[in-house]
Nucleic acid binder design. Structure first.
Length: 219
DNA sequence: ATCCCGAGGG
DNA sequence: CCCTCTGGAT
Protein backbone atom coordinates (compact mmCIF):
# COMPACT_ATOMS: atom_id res chain seq x y z
CA UNK A 1 0.00 0.00 0.00
CA UNK A 2 1.61 3.22 -1.15
CA UNK A 3 1.70 6.28 1.04
CA UNK A 4 -1.34 8.41 0.28
CA UNK A 5 -1.00 11.77 -1.44
CA UNK A 6 -2.37 13.59 1.61
CA UNK A 7 0.10 11.82 3.84
CA UNK A 8 2.98 12.74 1.52
CA UNK A 9 1.83 16.35 1.43
CA UNK A 10 1.75 16.47 5.23
CA UNK A 11 5.24 15.01 5.40
CA UNK A 12 6.46 17.55 2.87
CA UNK A 13 4.93 20.40 4.87
CA UNK A 14 6.70 19.26 8.02
CA UNK A 15 10.01 18.96 6.20
CA UNK A 16 9.67 22.37 4.57
CA UNK A 17 8.73 24.02 7.87
CA UNK A 18 11.82 22.62 9.51
CA UNK A 19 14.11 23.56 6.62
CA UNK A 20 12.60 27.04 6.57
CA UNK A 21 13.52 27.53 10.22
CA UNK A 22 17.00 26.11 9.69
CA UNK A 23 17.91 28.07 6.55
CA UNK A 24 16.15 31.45 6.79
CA UNK A 25 18.92 32.81 4.57
CA UNK A 26 18.51 30.21 1.82
CA UNK A 27 18.45 31.78 -1.58
CA UNK A 28 19.75 31.21 -5.05
CA UNK A 29 23.50 31.71 -5.20
CA UNK A 30 23.44 33.70 -8.42
CA UNK A 31 21.29 36.71 -7.64
CA UNK A 32 20.75 38.33 -10.99
CA UNK A 33 17.27 39.79 -11.34
CA UNK A 34 17.87 40.77 -14.96
CA UNK A 35 16.47 37.81 -16.93
CA UNK A 36 19.20 37.78 -19.56
CA UNK A 37 21.96 38.01 -16.96
CA UNK A 38 20.38 35.27 -14.86
CA UNK A 39 19.97 33.10 -17.95
CA UNK A 40 23.62 33.47 -18.98
CA UNK A 41 24.87 33.06 -15.42
CA UNK A 42 22.83 29.90 -14.95
CA UNK A 43 24.18 28.39 -18.15
CA UNK A 44 27.70 29.13 -16.95
CA UNK A 45 26.96 27.67 -13.51
CA UNK A 46 26.86 24.07 -14.71
CA UNK A 47 29.69 22.09 -13.11
CA UNK A 48 31.20 25.27 -11.75
CA UNK A 49 31.40 27.16 -8.47
CA UNK A 50 29.26 30.23 -7.93
CA UNK A 51 32.32 32.26 -7.00
CA UNK A 52 33.84 31.65 -10.41
CA UNK A 53 30.59 32.43 -12.20
CA UNK A 54 30.34 35.72 -10.33
CA UNK A 55 33.96 36.43 -11.21
CA UNK A 56 33.50 35.70 -14.91
CA UNK A 57 30.17 37.46 -15.29
CA UNK A 58 31.53 40.66 -13.78
CA UNK A 59 33.49 41.40 -16.93
CA UNK A 60 31.13 39.58 -19.26
CA UNK A 61 28.07 41.62 -18.33
CA UNK A 62 29.91 44.88 -18.93
CA UNK A 63 30.84 43.77 -22.44
CA UNK A 64 27.56 42.09 -23.42
CA UNK A 65 24.45 43.95 -22.30
CA UNK A 66 21.81 42.66 -24.73
CA UNK A 67 20.81 39.51 -26.59
CA UNK A 68 21.93 41.27 -29.77
CA UNK A 69 25.41 41.71 -28.32
CA UNK A 70 25.73 37.98 -27.56
CA UNK A 71 24.26 37.09 -30.94
CA UNK A 72 27.02 39.05 -32.65
CA UNK A 73 29.77 37.83 -30.30
CA UNK A 74 32.90 36.23 -31.69
CA UNK A 75 32.82 32.56 -30.71
CA UNK A 76 36.53 32.28 -29.97
CA UNK A 77 36.47 35.44 -27.87
CA UNK A 78 33.47 34.28 -25.85
CA UNK A 79 35.11 30.87 -25.37
CA UNK A 80 38.10 32.57 -23.83
CA UNK A 81 35.88 34.71 -21.62
CA UNK A 82 33.97 31.74 -20.17
CA UNK A 83 36.93 29.33 -20.27
CA UNK A 84 37.39 28.91 -16.52
CA UNK A 85 33.78 27.84 -15.93
CA UNK A 86 34.39 24.52 -17.71
CA UNK A 87 32.53 23.14 -20.73
CA UNK A 88 33.61 26.39 -22.33
CA UNK A 89 33.09 25.41 -25.96
CA UNK A 90 29.59 24.12 -25.38
CA UNK A 91 28.66 27.05 -23.16
CA UNK A 92 29.94 29.71 -25.58
CA UNK A 93 28.13 28.03 -28.45
CA UNK A 94 24.97 27.70 -26.38
CA UNK A 95 24.98 31.35 -25.34
CA UNK A 96 25.42 32.61 -28.90
CA UNK A 97 22.84 30.19 -30.29
CA UNK A 98 20.39 31.07 -27.57
CA UNK A 99 20.92 34.79 -28.15
CA UNK A 100 20.34 34.43 -31.88
CA UNK A 101 17.06 32.70 -31.08
CA UNK A 102 16.09 35.44 -28.64
CA UNK A 103 16.70 38.05 -31.33
CA UNK A 104 15.01 36.09 -34.12
CA UNK A 105 11.96 34.83 -32.24
CA UNK A 106 11.48 36.94 -29.12
CA UNK A 107 12.49 40.48 -30.06
CA UNK A 108 15.67 40.12 -28.02
CA UNK A 109 13.70 39.50 -24.83
CA UNK A 110 13.87 36.44 -22.56
CA UNK A 111 10.51 34.63 -22.81
CA UNK A 112 8.38 33.90 -19.75
CA UNK A 113 7.08 30.40 -20.38
CA UNK A 114 8.69 27.05 -19.69
CA UNK A 115 8.06 25.84 -23.23
CA UNK A 116 9.58 28.90 -24.88
CA UNK A 117 12.58 28.83 -22.54
CA UNK A 118 13.40 25.15 -22.99
CA UNK A 119 13.02 25.57 -26.76
CA UNK A 120 16.07 27.84 -26.66
CA UNK A 121 19.29 26.00 -27.48
CA UNK A 122 21.37 25.41 -24.36
CA UNK A 123 18.42 25.98 -22.05
CA UNK A 124 17.03 22.89 -20.35
CA UNK A 125 14.43 22.26 -17.68
CA UNK A 126 16.67 23.31 -14.79
CA UNK A 127 17.88 26.57 -16.30
CA UNK A 128 14.39 27.47 -17.50
CA UNK A 129 12.93 26.98 -14.03
CA UNK A 130 15.68 29.08 -12.44
CA UNK A 131 14.77 31.95 -14.75
CA UNK A 132 11.03 31.56 -14.20
CA UNK A 133 11.37 31.43 -10.45
CA UNK A 134 14.06 33.99 -9.84
CA UNK A 135 13.79 36.53 -12.65
CA UNK A 136 10.05 36.40 -13.29
CA UNK A 137 8.70 35.53 -9.86
CA UNK A 138 6.72 32.56 -11.10
CA UNK A 139 6.42 29.48 -8.86
CA UNK A 140 9.05 27.11 -10.26
CA UNK A 141 11.10 24.21 -8.93
CA UNK A 142 14.57 23.91 -10.45
CA UNK A 143 15.75 20.31 -10.08
CA UNK A 144 19.51 20.44 -9.95
CA UNK A 145 21.58 17.55 -8.63
CA UNK A 146 21.17 18.80 -5.05
CA UNK A 147 17.40 19.03 -5.22
CA UNK A 148 17.30 15.64 -6.92
CA UNK A 149 19.46 13.90 -4.34
CA UNK A 150 17.84 15.53 -1.31
CA UNK A 151 14.34 14.80 -2.60
CA UNK A 152 15.26 11.15 -3.04
CA UNK A 153 16.73 10.82 0.44
CA UNK A 154 13.90 12.67 2.17
CA UNK A 155 11.37 10.54 0.33
CA UNK A 156 9.75 13.55 -1.35
CA UNK A 157 10.20 11.78 -4.68
CA UNK A 158 10.96 8.22 -5.69
CA UNK A 159 11.71 8.32 -9.40
CA UNK A 160 15.17 8.06 -10.93
CA UNK A 161 14.03 10.39 -13.69
CA UNK A 162 14.69 14.07 -12.82
CA UNK A 163 11.70 15.06 -14.91
CA UNK A 164 9.41 12.88 -12.81
CA UNK A 165 11.04 14.05 -9.59
CA UNK A 166 10.16 17.59 -10.66
CA UNK A 167 6.53 16.60 -11.19
CA UNK A 168 6.33 14.67 -7.92
CA UNK A 169 7.70 17.65 -6.01
CA UNK A 170 5.15 19.94 -7.66
CA UNK A 171 2.46 17.48 -6.62
CA UNK A 172 3.45 17.44 -2.97
CA UNK A 173 4.51 21.08 -2.43
CA UNK A 174 2.06 23.99 -2.45
CA UNK A 175 2.48 26.00 -5.63
CA UNK A 176 3.24 29.23 -3.77
CA UNK A 177 6.21 27.49 -2.13
CA UNK A 178 7.82 26.03 -5.24
CA UNK A 179 10.60 28.55 -5.73
CA UNK A 180 11.29 28.75 -2.01
CA UNK A 181 11.48 24.96 -1.67
CA UNK A 182 13.90 24.90 -4.56
CA UNK A 183 16.24 27.18 -2.61
CA UNK A 184 15.74 25.29 0.64
CA UNK A 185 16.49 21.86 -0.82
CA UNK A 186 19.52 23.15 -2.70
CA UNK A 187 20.86 24.85 0.40
CA UNK A 188 20.31 21.74 2.51
CA UNK A 189 22.05 19.64 -0.15
CA UNK A 190 25.05 21.93 -0.24
CA UNK A 191 25.47 22.44 3.48
CA UNK A 192 24.39 19.14 5.07
CA UNK A 193 22.94 16.50 2.77
CA UNK A 194 25.98 16.34 0.52
CA UNK A 195 26.49 13.65 -2.09
CA UNK A 196 29.48 11.87 -0.60
CA UNK A 197 29.58 12.29 3.14
CA UNK A 198 26.31 13.77 4.36
CA UNK A 199 26.48 15.36 7.80
CA UNK A 200 23.61 13.30 9.20
CA UNK A 201 24.54 13.94 12.85
CA UNK A 202 24.00 17.65 12.21
CA UNK A 203 20.92 17.24 10.04
CA UNK A 204 17.91 19.38 11.00
CA UNK A 205 15.46 16.91 9.47
CA UNK A 206 17.11 13.66 10.53
CA UNK A 207 14.06 12.62 12.52
CA UNK A 208 11.88 13.06 9.44
CA UNK A 209 14.29 11.35 7.05
CA UNK A 210 13.49 7.84 5.78
CA UNK A 211 16.73 7.44 3.87
CA UNK A 212 18.16 3.98 4.67
CA UNK A 213 21.73 5.22 4.23
CA UNK A 214 21.45 8.01 6.75
CA UNK A 215 24.10 8.22 9.45
CA UNK A 216 25.93 5.20 8.01
CA UNK A 217 28.63 7.38 6.55
CA UNK A 218 29.69 8.03 10.14
CA UNK A 219 29.14 4.58 11.58
C1' DA B 1 39.76 9.17 -8.33
C1' DT B 2 35.32 11.24 -8.34
C1' DC B 3 31.81 14.49 -8.40
C1' DC B 4 29.69 18.86 -9.55
C1' DC B 5 23.22 24.20 -8.85
C1' DG B 6 23.19 20.29 -17.20
C1' DA B 7 22.17 19.88 -21.89
C1' DG B 8 22.50 17.88 -26.37
C1' DG B 9 23.33 14.21 -29.26
C1' DG B 10 23.50 9.37 -30.82
C1' DC C 1 19.49 4.84 -22.33
C1' DC C 2 24.08 5.95 -23.13
C1' DC C 3 27.80 9.24 -23.99
C1' DT C 4 30.34 13.71 -24.28
C1' DC C 5 31.91 18.15 -22.95
C1' DT C 6 35.56 20.89 -19.09
C1' DG C 7 37.85 23.07 -15.05
C1' DG C 8 37.91 22.96 -10.36
C1' DA C 9 37.07 21.22 -5.68
C1' DT C 10 37.53 17.54 -2.50
Amino acid sequence: MAESLERRKARARALVRRLERTYPDARIALTFSNPLELLVATILAAQCTDERVNQVTQGLFKKYRTAEAYAKADLAALEREVYSTGFFKAKARAIIGMAKDLVAKHGGQVPRSLGELTALPGVGRKTANVVLGNAYGQPAIAVDTHVFRVSQRLGLAKSEDPEKVHDQLCQVIARAKWTRVSHLLTTHGRRVCTARSPACPDCPVLALCPWPGKTRAFA
